[in-house]
Design a protein around this nucleic acid. Structure first.
Lengths: 336, 336
DNA sequence: ACGATTCATTGGAACGTTCCAAGACGTCTG
DNA sequence: CAGACGTCTTGGAACGTTCCAATGAATCGT
């Protein structure tokens, strides 16, 4: 870039007016004469003028930007939530600044710091792994909405999530309702969400008098984790006729494990996932799942955030959305 | 936010030094005495000081940020490219600003304008639909690297892509090599990439003396498009034993269509995709595909971009990476 | 025909940083 | 002991905007 970019002063000089008037005209003020407006617009176009967002943000003391931290972009679940967030954000004329932390709390914290330096006006954290104390500290600076995790509370923090325990219960009851009794659970590890979904499973089993059959195989919310867990399960509990996997991604891994060992769902084993990511509906997968309204959750998150951006003193909210069992092709009554 | 955030002046006052020294200390200069440094760091921590990125960018006249425009976040292909981009970007101490255009040229252009207002130092366009003239205009302002599309050239534009025509040929040859002759193509519509892949298909067919069997069913690079195209194909060409789909996502749709009509791959029809998105390897899908080195392409894109950011006069590059046929579970010789 | 009112326009201060030339204070050299 | 040099520190200008109070010009009512 040898030549400096044109500034508002260059435009003003060319149009023969003051920089203030250029500023006004470019932002569409109605107190600029038609004549000046035309001259200014023409000058700006000829010079290829672009406003400098850094200068504008500095002068305004606002960035019209919200920050979104998410786990990663590979799990399509996050993309769906993000769609909802961006829809609302665009409507409001804000932009979204997106960072990923890959589940590493330190990295997440540093990405968050970057967002705050950019003067984002609010933050949406989607499935993060931050230390609760860090989240609370951030919430003292800016409104925060946490999506898909409900265990962190504090002033300035709103949450959007589903009732994971009830969901785990419903998923399990679906299998029980089909006639299964030897139902195992591929868990999602020790995250709060995973624990809730597992608790729901255990509750449903106990309530149905199947407490003795509770069988949990630890997984990790990933495809690989689900695959490995399912393989271990097939060894350890060959009598199982159904599996509830803690999320769709690990359910897909489990499905792969079944496939690799010459089995299939629901013929050999019925399988239910959790999340409702649209890819899992796809093609030959047709995964039965507890579907969360992901895009809706994203919209709601953004709405709640803007409420607090606009009136910082308004109360934080805890929204619980309902998930619904979506029966597709991987569950059926047990083979006789 | 009733109370103003602390600035560098507040830190300076508290530490009993000048703002200049605070600025130096916070950026790790070695010409600050240990004593001052400690006082400054302590004061900054006590106040919860965060540098204001807008002010910094304005003063430096650089943002240490690159902009990435991508189609959307649902196709996991883009997430994989992005991983590569972000890896390099992080290494350089830059941040990435991510926007999506959802294939709408106007929206893409407006998102791009936003990035340029933020003074991004360079741009990576992943599978965009911009008007070539717009892309060239932008490239006059900032270095641009285009990934997954090679038809736009001009000063300031580098490209990273694979040889889509050769890839289309290789995918088709794989099917021919397995003994198929009635091979159809589910195309990706009329984008340049789609046209190249289709041309490769036609070349391979013709070269194998199967020119008369060329059969193209228009699709759209989406799951729904692939599904619909496959359904039409089953009506229109029941004799086909193999299909080359223009990308993995539409191949997955095609797979779903097969499934829905009581068929499967490769038993009834062999199926090859294109892209190499990791989700398609997953579970029971095991899609055979022409795999592009997606993450590598992202890394390369970022490297090329930084070369041009660092020496703006260096030449732009056109990198062509090789894709490889990855035979998984959806292709086999035709049924006897 | 004159003050009041409206309208379009202006210059300057602010926003929070970085950079630069220059200053204060010691210490060394001969 | 004067001058040169080093180290640490400083105030002020710049970056490109927006906002505000003030200005000048035109129009109005009486």
């Amino acid at each position: 870039m040898t030549d400096r970019r044109p500034t508002i002063n260059d435009v003003a000089a060319r149009a023969g007016v003051s920089k203030s008037l250029v500023s006004l005209a470019l932002r569409g003020s109605d107190k600029v004469s038609e004549e000046s407006r035309a001259a200014i617009l023409a000058a700006a176009a000829e010079l290829g003028y672009r406003p400098n967002a850094a200068a504008r943000n500095l002068a305004d003391r606002r960035s019209r930007t919200i920050g979104v931290l998410l786990h990663d972009l590979h799990n399509p679940v996050f993309a769906e939530v993000l769609d909802g967030v961006q829809e609302i954000t665009r409507q409001r004329g804000y932009r979204t600044m997106l960072v990923t932390g890959h589940g590493d709390p330190e990295r997440e914290e540093s990405e968050l710091a970057g967002l705050l330096e950019f003067q984002v006006e609010g933050l949406i954290l989607i499935s993060h792994r931050l230390d609760p104390e860090v989240a609370r500290r951030v919430a003292r600076e800016r409104p925060v909405v946490i999506v898909l995790r409900h265990d962190i509370t504090g002033p300035g923090i709103s949450t959007i999530c589903t009732d994971d325990r009830a969901g785990g219960r419903a998923a399990t009851e679906h299998l029980i309702g089909l006639g299964h009794s030897r139902i195992a659970h591929v868990s999602g590890g020790d995250s709060p969400i995973a624990r809730d979904r597992q608790a729901g499973y255990e509750e449903a089993m106990t309530a149905a008098g199947l407490g003795a059959d509770v069988l949990v195989e630890p997984g990790s919310f990933t495809e690989a984790g689900g695959r490995a867990a399912m393989l271990r399960l097939l060894e350890r509990a060959p009598q199982a006729t159904a599996v509830f996997a803690a999320n769709d991604l690990s359910a897909l891994g489990a499905l792969g494990a079944l496939h690799d060992t010459g089995r299939s769902a629901p013929a050999d084993i019925s399988l239910v996932g959790f999340d409702g990511m649209s890819l899992a509906a796809l093609g030959s997968l047709r995964l039965t799942t507890m579907a969360q309204p992901l895009t809706r959750m994203g919209q709601l998150a953004a709405q709640r955030l803007f409420e607090r951006i606009e009136s910082p003193l308004s109360r934080t909210q805890r929204d619980v959305v309902v998930s619904e069992l979506t029966a597709r092709g991987t569950t059926a009554p047990p083979a006789a």
